[in-house]
């Protein structure tokens, strides 16, 4: 759980998460170890996205640093009633530190405008990945695979109508279809990432 170079310095930067701190943190998430591990992974994913939304360039590192800080507070004896609420608070505080750090660095660079590397998405970036996309799609159970195909198929102006028909065919409201498609798509993401690593 090392922080990136751009990571702001914490007041107790040498503090490392201990087994005791980690166990107590997991226990707060759920007394059952398996469920706690599941909850931990879920919370970490959400923290990563949260830092992403905040504009962090290294959201995974910031998510881990948030957990470190939470574990440290637990070891220090802080009483935590709502762990989700507490984690959110720590993450926001960390984000403020990141912003302050960024501002300090900006000043050092003679107030150069922040480099925003907006890169166009090119088809050639997609093409090599298509094999992974298609193989992962084919690994999905048939109903989910079909859902993704029917939901995301490129059909110009008919997309909204197509999705309404799909909701009717599945006998679920349109909003439930959106959520279902999102969940399957997230599942697909994990498979594609694994595939791309190979």
């Amino acid at each position: 759980m090392a922080l990136s170079e751009s990571q702001p310095k914490t007041r107790k930067k040498d503090w490392q998460i201990t087994q005791e701190g980690f166990d107590r943190f997991l226990n707060l998430l759920n007394p059952q170890r398996d469920l706690a591990a599941e909850k931990y992974e879920q919370l970490r994913k959400r923290l990563v996205k949260l830092f992403e939304w905040r504009g962090s360039q290294t959201p995974e590192d910031h998510a881990d640093e948030t957990f470190n800080r939470v574990a440290r507070k637990i070891v220090e004896g802080m009483e935590i009633r709502d762990i989700n609420h507490f984690v959110g608070g720590v993450a926001r505080r960390l984000f403020l530190e990141i912003v302050e750090e960024r501002e300090r660095e900006q000043k050092k660079l003679n107030q150069l405008p922040e480099a925003v590397a907006v890169m166009e998405i090119r088809d050639k970036e997609i093409d090599p990945r298509l094999d992974c996309f298609r193989s992962c799609l084919n690994e999905l159970p048939s109903p989910q695979r079909q859902l993704i195909i029917d939901y995301y198929r490129e059909d110009e102006h008919k997309r909204i109508e197509q999705r309404k028909l799909l909701a009717v065919a599945l006998q679920i409201p349109l909003n439930a279809l959106r959520i279902r498609a999102y969940r399957v798509r997230s599942q697909l993401d994990e498979c594609i990432r694994d595939c791309l690593k190979k």
Binding site: Y151, R153, E154, R185, D189
Partner: peptide, 20 residues
């Protein structure tokens, strides 16, 4: 990029069968 890939893959797969 992921989303673009999903749309491309879904469209390619959909071309193999008619719309529901």
């Amino acid at each position: 990029l992921m989303m673009k890939g999903v749309i491309a893959a879904a469209t390619a797969e959909a071309a193999l069968k008619p719309a529901p």
